[in-house]
Design a binder for these strands. Structure first.
Lengths: 229, 229
DNA sequence: GACAAGCAGATTGTCGACAATCTAACAAGA
DNA sequence: TCTTGTTAGATTGTCGACAATCTGCTTGTC
């Protein structure tokens, strides 16, 4: 028999498609933080009944990007400066752990995949596609978590990433400048190919802090705006 | 005005109650790993319709203790030795982080709460109430995560804890001996009250490893049994 | 004008029924 | 005997309607 790997077939339920649609809308900032999701309106727009929509929303609530208040409604989570700080500081810890687990397992396939994802970021950057740039950067970043061979870590990181992606998207949306033009991942990729694990861990931590400062200033702006109400 | 803290009123939806019921059934091992949840049967037993039940199940799927296959059913997650290893190794990392965050914030209220929870564990142990013993031990363990003042960390730890509680419950159920009789938390509490943070972190890691060995042997048994089918 | 009671509209929560899909058993053919 | 097609039953996925709850406005009273 030919040894062909079939990928799992796509989810065929409306629910799964709704989840994907909503998640994308939230993570790209099309649905803004705090905004209420009206079930009737959305279900009519999507041409589905409220049952699968509500189930989809329950999933996203547990995923941490929606929040629900009984009999009041379901809302996109609010973004506070503290949330961003918390998410980032945990992300650092997870990254250090992921690098530690991945390190002894690096092989040619890992390096190839690293390059592939790095290339995808550069391409999105050249195309000035900010949404895609965020996505690809997080995917590059996520390789160590996939490679770490720890399903709980991967799952945890993916949950965290949802929020990070949302924060970045909001940030990008807020300032209308184009994205950081130059390639900030060059050093990271080089270090992950190198032989000094501690250095890689250190850089991951510092590199994060870099983007972080920008995000935080955005979040502080949000805070101020909110406190006026 | 009298400064009285009101606790939030109970969730009034059926969905929330169903979630609580199902979670408890799973975490105490009344529903076994791999077991299928028949929607019609459960909804009849609980005297509710399938809609809130299905929404509840979606939540528990995202919580990581159920797994769903479209048109096939929703099942209690399987427990493999690797899952336990993964969960525990991540738990160690989170613990170290939580201790680091909590350390500078420890105050009298913290110490009091530590003692209170410690006392609850001892009481459950004396009463030979294994289920409650697991619960209280995890609550004692969770104090550092609550005190760390990092909402993302807390949320992450709670997700992880669900599984740990399930693993422990299964383990306790498997062997019919009474639980570890003596108080294994004495040292931990003392260290958390002390002044050597590194020592506390080290102990948390080692103490975990202790219980861990027992759990693992249980998981390996499961593996063997599964591979025979 | 301030305030409470009550009503109307909108929205969420829940229900029972129907449609789509899967599973397992059986039959037909090579 | 093995494979393939068919069918019946059971189960999950989805729908439209109804019940419970909230919100904001109006009304009446002081």
């Amino acid at each position: 028999m030919a040894k062909l790997d079939f990928s799992p077939i796509a989810d065929t339920t409306r629910r799964a498609e709704i989840v994907a649609l909503l998640r994308r809308a939230i993570l790209t900032g099309q649905l803004e933080p705090g905004q209420k999701l009206n079930e009737l309106r959305i279900s009519e727009q999507m041409r589905v009944s409220r049952a699968p929509l509500r189930e989809a929303m329950r999933e996203l609530v547990q995923e941490g990007i929606l929040t629900s208040i009984p009999y009041a409604g379901t809302f996109v989570i609010d973004v506070t400066a503290k949330d961003i700080i918390d998410a980032y500081s945990l992300n650092k810890v997870l990254d250090e752990f992921a690098i530690e687990l991945t390190w002894p397992q690096r092989d040619q396939r890992f390096f190839d995949e690293l390059d592939r994802r790095h290339e995808a970021v550069k391409q999105a950057t050249r195309a000035l596609d900010t949404t895609r740039q965020i996505e690809t950067a997080l995917q590059l970043h996520g390789l160590i978590h996939e490679w770490a061979d720890n399903s709980v870590l991967l799952e945890t990181w993916q949950r965290l990433t949802s929020r990070l992606q949302m924060y970045f998207a909001l940030h990008q949306r807020a300032r209308n400048e184009p994205v950081p033009a130059e390639d900030v991942h060059e050093t990271y990729v080089a270090l992950m190919k190198g032989s000094d694990m501690r250095a890689a861990q250190r850089h991951a931590r510092e590199h994060i802090d870099l983007d972080f400062e920008e995000l935080l200033s955005y979040a502080r702006g949000l805070e101020k705006r909110a406190s006026k109400n």
